[in-house]
């Protein structure tokens, strides 16, 4: 659970936002979308919680844990990525770590997103569902992992809202709506990987010209995913807030996943409540990832308890993912 992990990559992908890959084979194998890690930052009392943004498990089963000889250097296997915004002294310290530095990581922690099973079972036909992912700003972090995790079995639309174009996750251009066609998933992903490689190399040239870039760090979103950026200043995608366009997708979506600021959740609650078309069903099918100040991260210190319709819950252990309508939002202080 707790280990010293070597940083293999650390780049600024948009102003103040960093994408960091670390060697963590155990977490890469076990992590579920929506789970998080905590990182010890310098001498700060509290470890910083960070959503798991992507994982790259070992392709062959490991026999010896982290020091496994099967893990070949530079492949990116057995690694996890975190995507974080520099918001204070702790994340500033973390952003300044170099490739090869080791950081103290605890994880994977918490209860992540629950994803409807689309796995084909005997005598039960495979059912693909429409998943709507809603990201506000840096809230994109766990949703990329979720999108990658669920895309082979579900139809996914990912809305990413930000203030301006530079803050939009720099991965994909606006995509045309596609039906979830799984006929050639592997060739599609392979071609995406190639594109991403180029994009990543370009990124590295811009931000860290001296670094060697042996591999891609920005894993692609599979092509089945519809990516919709929306910015407050209209500099890319549509102009507005995610909640402005959300109503257009409520009927399409079987399940909504959201990660963003509390104000976004409160606005979503209004929307889902007032959407006549989908009043009943959508309210019950929206999972949100909540961020509060965490102490231990493992459910021992009771520093992160919130009140829900189901009683007291520890964000670090019972969450960070909750049903939108389970949380008593009037008690949540921003």
């Amino acid at each position: 659970m707790q280990s010293l992990c070597t940083i293999t990559s650390n780049v600024e992908i948009s102003p103040g936002v960093r994408l960091m890959w670390v060697e963590a084979p155990d977490i890469a194998v076990a992590a579920q979308p929506g789970q998080f890690i905590t990182v010890r930052c310098e001498d700060f009392m509290l470890r910083r919680p960070l959503s798991i943004h992507q994982v790259s498990p070992l392709s062959s089963p490991s026999t010896g844990g982290e020091a496994s000889p099967e893990r070949s250097e530079g492949t990116g296997e057995g690694e996890i990525a975190i995507l974080f915004q520099v918001v204070g002294k702790g994340t500033l310290w973390l952003s300044q770590r170099q490739i090869g530095d080791k950081i103290d990581v605890l994880g994977s922690l918490g209860k992540g997103f629950s994803i409807p099973s689309g796995i084909a079972r005997r005598k039960v036909p495979r059912q693909s569902k429409n998943l709507l992912l809603v990201a506000g700003g840096i809230g994109i972090a766990p949703l990329i992992f979720l999108a990658q995790f669920a895309s082979s079995q579900h139809s996914i639309t990912l809305i990413h809202g930000a203030r301006t174009a530079a803050q939009i996750y720099p991965l994909l251009p606006l995509r045309a709506l596609r039906s979830p066609c799984h006929s050639e998933p592997f060739t599609v992903i392979a071609s995406e990987a190639k594109q991403s490689h180029l994009a990543q190399d370009k990124l590295r040239e811009e931000s860290h010209p001296s670094e060697q870039a042996p591999r891609s760090n920005l894993s692609p979103l599979p092509q089945e995913i519809r990516f919709i950026p929306i910015t407050e200043d209209g500099s890319t995608g549509r102009k507005g807030m995610v909640t402005d366009i959300l109503p257009d997708f409520l009927d399409w979506a079987d399940q909504i996943y959201a990660c963003g600021p509390v104000d976004m959740y409160k606005a979503m609650l209004e929307l889902t409540c007032h959407s006549e078309r989908s009043e009943e069903s959508k309210l019950k099918k929206c999972q949100v990832s909540l961020e509060v100040r965490l102490g231990c991260g493992i459910g021992a210190c009771y520093g992160c308890t919130i009140n829900t319709k189901g009683g007291l819950k520890k964000v670090c252990q019972d969450g960070p993912v909750f049903e939108l309508d389970d949380i008593l939002w009037e008690e949540v202080r921003v």
Binding site: M45, L46, V292, R293, G295, Y302, T305, N307, V332, R333
Partner: peptide
């Protein structure tokens, strides 16, 4: 006991303020 309202934790210089309030 349900303890105190959030926020319950606050980092300070070389320290930590808590007001968990004996939630147990």
């Amino acid at each position: 006991r349900s303890g105190n309202p959030q926020p319950r934790l606050m980092e300070t210089a070389s320290g930590l303020l808590n007001s968990v309030g004996l939630e147990n």
